[in-house]
Write a protein that binds this DNA or RNA. Structure first.
Lengths: 381, 381
DNA sequence: ATTAGCACTCTAAAGGTAAGAGTGCTAACA
DNA sequence: TGTTAGCACTCTTACCTTTAGAGTGCTAAT
């Protein structure tokens, strides 16, 4: 890290040029090509010397003796932290993103899925999106609706405006009214509690106010409890997997298969994504967007984006990739994470600008939902 | 088709052997290897002559002059129609399937998704499953639940036991009671009608019984109508895409990408699958399973499975594949389709047996749901 | 009708060569 | 002392040639 300080201007220029060219061509870049393309004032011999030093410092690698250089993980890291010029998202794309996300105000998961589709479409890589994490939300409503004797729909509404439902079995003899009574009792007793605080015991004690025999209650209680808990189930949306097959790094069938197989383990990936934290000392605060709601008192409290490169990715099968993610918020709490995965040789500039813009757009939309939510809570009290 | 009649026993034997071997090895099979492996009583020269004739008849092809033969689409067709020996599904696999599908009695889409996962797991190919098609079902319940001012959950329950819901915007001033009134009016007016027969007009006239100003009603009506119609939206579940990368026919990146890209167009695939009909004159009735509910009076009224090979597949990007599908039923109507897609050189025997068994297991489970359903209807009247 | 034998064809693997891109090093230069 | 021209060297890639082998079709014998 402090190595980066020691890079003089020329080295930085050369490193940036190497990474830029390699991102573009996927071919090792040599000293001569570099001079030709970037009109450097230094000769190719000088650049050769500098590149040898950059290699010694660990920023570049050589596939074999007589080839050009390619960036190492460390080289990419320096590039994204200090060198990359983030372009503005084009007006058409901004328009496209805004327009496409506009009509999803009502359904949160729909919004996230669309955002995911947008990211894979506009970047040409694969996008991953995590449904919101709502453990800190509190229960607002729980309703049970009889579908037919023995089957019921449980609807759980959380403070974040999240609605989840689930079909469950209930005792055949239970009728619709009794079911509503139970739900009402649970709602009465538990609404306002966070999901974390709700246990089978609290559910049971709340339901005791429904004047029904315990034998009838038990199965229903359990299902209600599970339904509440399942509101927090993480879902992962993946879009544009096939995009990666375009890139030479995935022309090796084994790599492609490893990648696809790994993504098929959505539970694992979802777990990884939900545990990603911005606590990496190497991570710059990459602030470039003052409109962002994550900026407070001029200081960025959550970075606009986060990047994991190669070996930095904790998931075995994705070590040949780079992963650019960002969080989205509902009100003031981080709700979920959305990101783009692709080859390490990724067009970081474009990805960063697009992902930041999508993040911003999602947050704006979610703020509107959250505001509606606050109004609703005021009405309640 | 009548060509098949003209194939004598020896030709049939040889054709079957060629297809079997090619399925196993993915290498063109030659006359000598055939004799060695199958201990035919004929000499390789005889087999050569026969293979030349089979090629002239269109059942076999030669990649180049001095190579062995591979089956043509017509060859595969003859194989699956007349030659393949369908093995029984192994007891472990049968147990696995039954066990894995057992707990999904409550949720129909869950059942179908699990079945899809099972198929791709047990066959090693890619599975496709279509959610049930419910246009012929009739509306049983429609409920509206206020989430917060301005947002409501619409729940639609159909006769088939299908439950769909959707979050919609409603006028802010509408309260929970008014919403329930509207839903009750619509339910009162429309329950019993098939989805096909319900139009915006019928919804509107039903809702007129809710004593509310028309200005308030209109948006809600429209959303209710859309929710009812959307109950019929087809969803497609795809599992095990990465499996196909194991097969040499997909080692060509372009083919792999075409395949993945095509599958990403789920709307198109869903449309294709839902329109597949068992009206193919070349399609044998492939009856081999007398326990199947599709057999009536000893005659099979819907085939246990359907196979489309290569050019028979109407979807451009899947012409290098074979597609084995079957339908599942709810009560007595065909509800949806589930299938396996893979290389034309597919282990048809295993796929057919697994898919037939899964079909049967789904149908058994769905019959239970349907029975519950009928009870519920009796209770109603 | 079947089959042994043989000449022929074509592919895939192996080896050998040449071109080219890129390097590191040395020596000259400002 | 930092920079650069020049050059020998290395390594990969593409291309060509050769060879082995698998498989065929045809002919003639059974």
């Amino acid at each position: 890290m402090s190595n980066q300080q020691s890079l003089d201007d020329r080295k930085r220029n050369i490193l940036k040029a190497v990474v830029d060219d390699y991102i573009e061509t996927a071919e090792p870049v040599g000293s001569k090509a570099l001079v030709d393309k970037h009109h450097f004032t230094w000769s190719s011999a000088t650049i050769r010397n500098e590149m040898a030093e950059l290699e010694a410092l660990g920023y570049l690698e050589q596939p074999h003796t007589s080839a050009g250089r390619i960036p190492s993980d460390k080289g990419y890291r320096a590039y994204v932290d200090n060198l990359v010029q983030v372009e503005d998202v084009s007006t058409e794309e901004a328009e496209k993103i805004r327009h496409y996300l506009k009509d999803s105000l009502d359904e949160l998961t729909g919004l996230i899925r669309k955002a995911s589709t947008l990211l894979s479409d506009t970047t040409g890589y694969t996008s991953l999106a995590l449904s919101p994490h709502v453990t800190q939300s509190h229960l607002q409503q729980i309703k049970m609706l009889m579908i037919e004797p023995g089957r019921a729909l449980v609807v759980v509404v959380l403070s974040a405006g999240v609605v989840k439902d689930r079909i469950v079995r209930v005792p055949d003899i239970l009728d619709a009214n009794q079911l509503m009574q139970i739900a009402a009792a649970i709602e009465e007793g538990l609404s306002g509690m966070t999901l974390n605080d709700i246990t089978l015991v609290t559910v049971a004690s709340a339901a005791r106010h429904a004047a029904l025999p315990e034998s009838l209650l038990n199965q229903v209680l359990y299902e209600a409890y599970v339904s509440i808990k399942q509101a927090d189930n993480l879902e992962l949306y993946i879009e544009g997997q096939h995009n990666l097959l375009s890139f030479p790094e995935f022309h090796d069938i084994n790599k492609a298969q490893t990648f696809f197989k790994t993504l098929a383990c959505d539970g694992m990936i979802a777990g990884y994504m939900s545990e990603l934290k911005e606590n990496d000392p190497e991570q710059s605060d990459n602030s470039f967007d003052t409109e962002d709601p994550c900026v407070q008192d001029g200081k960025r409290i959550c970075p606009a984006y986060m990047i994991r490169i190669g070996q930095e990715i904790a998931v075995e099968g994705l070590r040949d990739c780079s992963f650019v993610t960002t969080t989205y918020k509902m009100g003031s709490v981080v709700a979920g994470r959305i990101g783009v995965i692709g080859p390490k040789r990724m067009a970081y500039s474009k990805v960063i600008s697009n992902i930041s813009f999508v993040k911003q757009t999602i947050n704006e939309n979610l703020r509107q939902i959250a505001q509606g939510e606050e109004i609703s809570e005021e009405n309640r009290t």
